[in-house]
Structure formats: structure tokens, C-alpha cells
């Protein structure tokens, strides 16, 4: 469809190359285990944020229940390894299929709702899922499951002794998702999503099947978030509903995209960098003062949202956000 994809986005790809080089070299220079963990988590949140951005950012349907798909992705790889000794290389994609199927059946009725009602219903949805998983004995119930596979081949089971292997592997996944989003950014699909976000009546009047496109966006969004959940489970090798499917996780997913800049390619990545860094540092340095870390975290989030409501992307000017599209015209 877009033969000139590389050509028209030369500047963007140049920037990306620099960014990737920095991401590859940074952990080699800063050899601190905490920083390595932080970087790995940033990648997980970047993937998840980019996933949410498809339905919430581009299509304007604010889902507050994406922890459902995060949990489904995590549980699929976790239980596949624990119960069936199945490699995550396979089960990640099973998780994607499960998440997309759930998104299809749940999305069909829910996406008929609009605005706040949709937001609240998705919140209820993930809460239901959490309670079901807590009571699901076979799936480990409330205590969760350790998914460490003994004597397993590191690469075959994605269980590394060297934490940097996680980082570099996740970097590949994040890059793949980023390129997919960048490609779709100027596609008919995403233009249609933006139109639906802008004005549904107008969308229908130009021949857009809004229900079908919303559902497709929701399914793609679920698939990407599911990958993020799967990777997170591999990273900490433990699954548990109270860690994966809470409202906190859903909110963090939304915040990542909102803080970075909704409906933009780079927004969720910048949001993930800012949010994860703030949350990890406040947790480590202030966690012992009974909740002070959460207070500071909250204050910092408020400050950022107050002073750049368009997200961090807006601070970098319109170039990043619209430059390529304008160039295309």
C-alpha cells in the first residue's frame, strides 16, 4: 500500500536509529541492575501503552479495563509453561488469539456504549475478570503461580539468568510494535479511527462502518496489550490476579498513553519512560515512608498533566506529531 513508507519518513527513521542505538548502548554504559530492570519495565509499559493508544488514543474509546488483556496475556504464557511445559514463544501468540477473541465478544456489545458509560463498563469488565481469576483454582487462584521452568533452555523458555537478555529481547518486541503503529499511522485504518474519534456522525456519512472499525481497533489493541502482559509475566516469572488485573494496572496503562500524548506514535513510549521512571524511583527511595512514594508519584503526574495536557509529545513540538503527515501531503 505505501511503497514510499521508508522514503517519506526518512527523518523519523533516522531519529529511530539514533534512539535504538542509545537504547542498546545505555545499559552497557550504566551497569546497574536496578537501571536494567527499570529499562525492561519501560519497554513493557511502552508496548502496553501503544496497544491502548489504538482504541483509546486513535479511536477515542477510553477503555479503563485493559488490565483484562494484560492479565490474559500473562496468564496464557504462565499457565502454558506451568501446566503444559509450553514455550512462551508459542504461548504468547495463543495469548494474543485468546485476547482478540475475548475482545471480539466483549467489544461487540460494549462498543455500542459511548463516552463515560463505555469507560465504566470496561472498568467493570476487568474487575469481573479479576474476581473470576481469584476464584479459579486450576489457574492458581488468589495465590498465583510461579512459572519458573527447571532445567529449561534459557532461550527456548525465555527465562534468562542475565537480566539484559530480557531487555534486548523486549526491545525487539517494542520496536516491532512501534513500526507496526508507525506504518498504520497513515493508513486508511487509522484515518478511519481518527474520524470516528472526531465525529461519529461525520464518519458514517463518509461511508465508515463505525461499529466494525471500533471492534477491529479494540481487537488490535487487546492483542498488543496481551503481548505486553505475556512479556511481563516472563520477566517476573510469576502470575497472580491481584498484580495483573487490578484497576491500578488499567489506570497505569491509560496514563502511559495520556501522559505521553494520545493518538500519537511516540506518545506512549515517552509516557512509559517518564511514568515508569518516576514510579520506580519514588517506590525505591520513598517506599519505606508509608505511602509517600504514591503521594509524590501522584503529584508529579498531576504536574505533568497540568502543564502539558497534550502529553509530553506536545513539548517536543508539532513536528514529531504531525510532521510526517504534513510532509506526505
Amino acid at each position: 500500500m505505501q511503497k514510499n513508507f521508508l522514503k517519506t519518513n526518512r527523518g523519523w527513521f533516522l531519529g529511530l536509529a539514533v534512539g535504538v542505538a542509545a537504547a542498546v548502548l545505555f545499559p552497557q554504559v550504566v551497569r546497574v541492575r536496578f537501571v536494567w530492570n527499570l529499562l525492561t519495565l519501560i519497554l513493557v509499559w511502552a508496548i502496553v501503552g501503544m496497544g491502548w493508544n489504538v482504541i483509546g488514543g486513535y479511536c477515542g474509546q477510553v477503555s479503563n479495563g485493559h488490565s483484562l488483556f494484560y492479565g490474559l496475556g500473562a496468564y496464557t504464557v504462565g499457565l502454558a509453561a506451568y501446566k503444559f511445559k509450553l514455550s512462551p514463544w508459542v504461548s504468547i501468540w495463543i495469548g494474543v488469539l485468546i485476547s482478540m477473541t475475548v475482545a471480539f465478544f466483549v467489544g461487540k456489545p460494549l462498543l455500542r456504549l459511548k463516552g463515560h458509560v463505555f469507560a465504566i463498563s470496561t472498568m467493570a469488565l476487568s474487575e469481573c475478570a479479576r474476581i473470576i481469576f481469584i476464584n479459579w483454582k486450576w489457574g492458581g487462584g488468589a495465590t498465583g503461580v510461579y512459572i519458573f521452568t527447571k532445567n529449561a533452555n534459557e532461550w527456548a523458555f525465555m527465562q534468562f539468568k542475565n537480566p539484559l537478555n530480557y531487555y534486548y529481547l523486549f526491545l525487539v518486541f517494542a520496536l516491532a510494535v512501534l513500526l507496526l503503529i508507525k506504518y498504520l499511522d497513515k493508513s486508511k485504518f487509522f484515518y478511519y479511527l481518527r474520524t470516528i474519534k472526531g465525529n461519529e456522525t461525520a464518519a458514517e456519512s463518509v461511508g465508515i462502518d463505525t461499529a466494525a472499525y471500533k471492534l477491529r481497533a479494540y481487537m488490535l489493541s487487546a492483542a498488543i496489550v496481551s503481548i505486553g502482559g505475556s512479556l511481563y509475566a516472563q520477566f517476573i516469572l510469576y502470575i497472580d490476579p491481584s498484580m495483573l488485573m487490578t484497576l491500578n494496572v488499567s489506570m497505569m496503562i491509560v496514563l502511559t498513553a495520556v501522559m505521553g500524548g494520545v493518538g500519537t506514535v511516540m506518545g506512549p513510549i515517552l509516557g512509559a519512560i517518564a511514568l515508569t521512571t518516576i514510579s520506580e524511583y519514588t517506590r525505591v527511595y520513598l517506599g519505606r515512608f508509608g505511602g509517600l512514594d504514591m503521594v509524590l508519584y501522584g503529584v508529579l503526574v498531576i504536574i505533568i498533566v497540568l502543564y502539558c495536557p497534550g502529553g509530553i509529545v506536545s513539548l517536543l513540538g508539532r513536528r514529531l506529531k504531525f510532521g510526517a503527515r504534513r510532509g506526505k501531503a
Partner: peptide, 11 residues
């Protein structure tokens, strides 16, 4: 453009 895409796939 969103109107034009109604009957065209190619950008």
C-alpha cells in the same frame, strides 16, 4: 481524505 478513502484503498 477520509471521504476519498471511501472508494479507494490506495493512499
Amino acid at each position: 481524505l477520509v471521504g476519498a478513502l471511501c472508494k479507494r484503498k490506495n493512499m
